[in-house]
Amino acid sequence: MPGLPILLFAAVAFVVALSILVIAQVVGPKRRTEVKMMPYESGMDPVHSARQRFNISFYLLAIEFLVFDVELLFLYPWAVAAHDRGAFGPDHAVFYAVCGFLSILVLGFVYTWRKGVFKWT
C-alpha cells in the first residue's frame, strides 16, 4: 500500500504536536489574574471586540489568488507532460494553446492591476 507511510506520518505529526500542547498545559503553573487574562494592547484596556470589519482589499486579493492558483493547477500537469516532446505530436498545437491560456490570464491580470486591486495606500 503506497499511501501507508503518508498516513502514518500524518498521524505521528498530529500526535507529536498534540502531546507538546498537552504537556505544556499540564506542567506549567496556573495563576489567573484578571489583568493577565486581558488581551495585550500596549497597556490600554481593550475597547470593543477585535472582530470587526476589515479592509476590502484583503477580500479582493483572496479572489485574485484563487484565479491564479487554479491556473497553476492547470499548468502543472502540462509542464510535466510537455517535457516529453513527442507527447503532443509534431505540430506545436498544445504549446500555442498554453500561450493562449496564459495571455487570457495576463489580460485579466492587467485589468485587475489597472483597477487598483494591488494598491495599498
Binding site: I23, A24, Q25, V27, G28, P29, K30, R31, K36, M37, M38, P39, P46, S49, A50
Partner: peptide, 11 residues
C-alpha cells in the same frame, strides 16, 4: 518554554 504559564485570554 515548557515551564511557563499557558494563558488563554478571557475573550
Amino acid at each position: 518554554f515548557i515551564l511557563k504559564e499557558e494563558i488563554i485570554p478571557d475573550g
